[in-house]
Design a binder for these strands. Sequence first.
DNA 1: GTGCCACTTCAAGTCGACTTGAGGTAAAGA
DNA 2: TCTTTACCTCAAGTCGACTTGAAGTGGCAC
Lengths: 146, 146
Amino acid sequence: MTELDIAEVVQRAGVPASTLRFYEEKGLIAASGRRGLRRQYDPAVLERLALIALGRTAGFSLDEIARMFAPDGQPRIDRQVLAAKAEELDRTIRELGVLRDSLRHAAACPAPSHMECPTFRRLLKATATGTAAAPRKRAPRSPQER
Amino acid sequence: MTELDIAEVVQRAGVPASTLRFYEEKGLIAASGRRGLRRQYDPAVLERLALIALGRTAGFSLDEIARMFAPDGQPRIDRQVLAAKAEELDRTIRELGVLRDSLRHAAACPAPSHMECPTFRRLLKATATGTAAAPRKRAPRSPQER
DNA sequence: GTGCCACTTCAAGTCGACTTGAGGTAAAGA
DNA sequence: TCTTTACCTCAAGTCGACTTGAAGTGGCAC
């Protein structure tokens, strides 16, 4: 039998069962069936969950993700939107690269005041002039449900 | 006079006044003084706000940001932590790069089912094996306060 | 067949990050 | 001087993304 019990999905995807139920309610995933009350999942749900996690990492809301991918995991909105999201993401990536470099510099530079360090200021300035930043939220909770 | 009125900061930083007050309450920024009731700011607050926005983009919470940078904008925690954050960020950046490529591929690939496309699956798999993703939140509201 | 216990539902609670609203105040123009 | 108006405070509300709690259920080991 190829179906996964919810407990197995929890274990393998590292996502709590409450989250799986929540995602189901939102239409982001679907159980392939039930064994009694227990949800059973197609193994493909693992890829789908990875896709959702990835989308969240990229700053998309659950609603946006639901809109981007049909329940079967296939991209469903038009290619223009997808391409636009890719561009948006590309800008974010470049900004994060600057921040990473800034952090590295701050960790390495012996100067006491980083705001006076030309390197640091130049890095900062490079992003301040960019598009308004899209905040990222904290990581999800631990896989245990209780 | 070199001080900026709050209205000016709102205008230049593209951040609503309510957010500035909120950040002040959280200890993330400070007004250099008041003109009557009105807050006045040192121009350096603009850089500090850029730094905060950048930190948010990178997925750090306001509390984390407050912990990373002293009120004067100087990094204050130890270099090890800074370097660790930079590494964490670097992993995230690589994952986002994969997502960007996946989106681009989805926008360009004429195949009807992307989950069956080897390119798409390979891209996805590359991130699924990585560290659990750190979700990003939606962009901030518009600069208008009402 | 009976008990355990991981699952179930559904409503309510939490958390971070702000926003909104009511009621107040002072700088600046008429 | 008087009014306007943009700021102020403080409490409460909102939103997304989940989590928690109470009460129920049914597969599986004994």
